[in-house]
Design a protein around this nucleic acid. Structure first.
Lengths: 115, 115, 115, 115
DNA sequence: GTGGTCTAGACCACG
DNA sequence: GTGGTCTAGACCACG
């Protein structure tokens, strides 16, 4: 019997994920200004420092950029976004396969669920 | 931008899921005695009442049964377990498809990730 | 000589029964809002958790439904209520027959008490 | 919504009832010796004083009698027992009718449950 | 306000 | 020992 996960994914990582989803889904396009730290903090109901950390991390990944006194915008170009989408999809696929395997379904049997 | 999930899956549901996984994976077989309420409580680090609730729910689903002073055991037969496995797999498939769609992949494009 | 019953019907079952009686007697009609958990707890002089358990059980039976922040209401329609009334009556009949049999009255002899 | 009964039938009355049932069912016949106070106390898991009170009450009703150093026996004759049976049955009938009425069944409708 | 979840801990029946 | 019930009380999400 496994241990519980009890939601131990850090909030700032969840924030990063939400922003990434907004980007790959096209809701946010290259160059678009994103919400201010304060706005996001109240939107998600978390501390502004937590938002700060998530956005800094996303800057390091090259997805966002900040311009002093102008706010943050999407820095990734179409190419980078397409890449991100692929990586996130592969992640989802991996998690899915693991889940199916835990249920006792081998790679071949998964096909059955597609027809 | 979606709201955060912030781990709002109730602990008792997570416990139910852990037990179900133990059953469909074959770790627990029909008739097997499961851990006592107190054991599970200390194993998962939660209150015995939370375990109680999860196990009662699983009894209602017909997966477990209790015998006073003897403990609980797996009440589902092979058939019921096979059924549960299928339902859980279909659930996983649905969640996966939703996730892929959120990333902008249509049903057809998902196929690409299998070759 | 039988053992004593010593009132071992759990309180939450007694609560369920009280609510069911209110419903089949027409005191509570389909769609009617019922007392809040806290109100019932103080009305019956028991812990809110005990009420909670009784009401959850009744939800599972489809008699009640809850709307977050709005309270609970009677979810059963006239048909379901009529059905419940029948089931409860058959239960009462069965208990009565058992009691009469314990007193040494066969099914035929019970008729005498009706004229 | 009614108040709960919460098992408020006094234990000594429940004991009386158990003895009466043993008598009308024929398990105990006129003249039969019954269990000692101590035996009954341990059988029912209650205080001997509670048994004492129940048996004294039954003596007052003429059902039992005690003989110093010999124990108690059934003092009622066949006639008295037959009478007791009738009274208890009428009680059961009354309680049953009340229950059915609470469920919304009139005296006539009760007949339906007999065919 | 409402219901939903959870903890901490007690006491019971049963074998 | 085991599961079953109950209390007291906290904290949460939701509107």
């Amino acid at each position: 019997m496994d241990k519980l996960l009890n939601g131990n994914v850090p909030i700032y990582v969840q924030i990063m994920d939400a922003v990434k989803h907004s980007i790959v889904s096209g809701e946010l396009k290259p160059g678009d200004k994103i919400m201010s730290v304060r706005e996001m903090a109240s939107h998600f109901g978390v501390n502004p420092n937590t938002i700060q950390r998530a956005l800094l991390e996303l800057e390091r990944e090259g997805l966002l950029a900040a311009e002093r006194a102008q706010g943050r915008y999407v820095a990734a170009d179409e190419n980078a976004i397409e890449n991100l989408r692929k990586v996130m999809a592969e992640d989802a696929v991996k998690r899915f396969k693991d889940e199916m395997q835990a249920l006792g379904y081998g790679p071949d049997e998964i096909e059955k669920f597609w027809r």
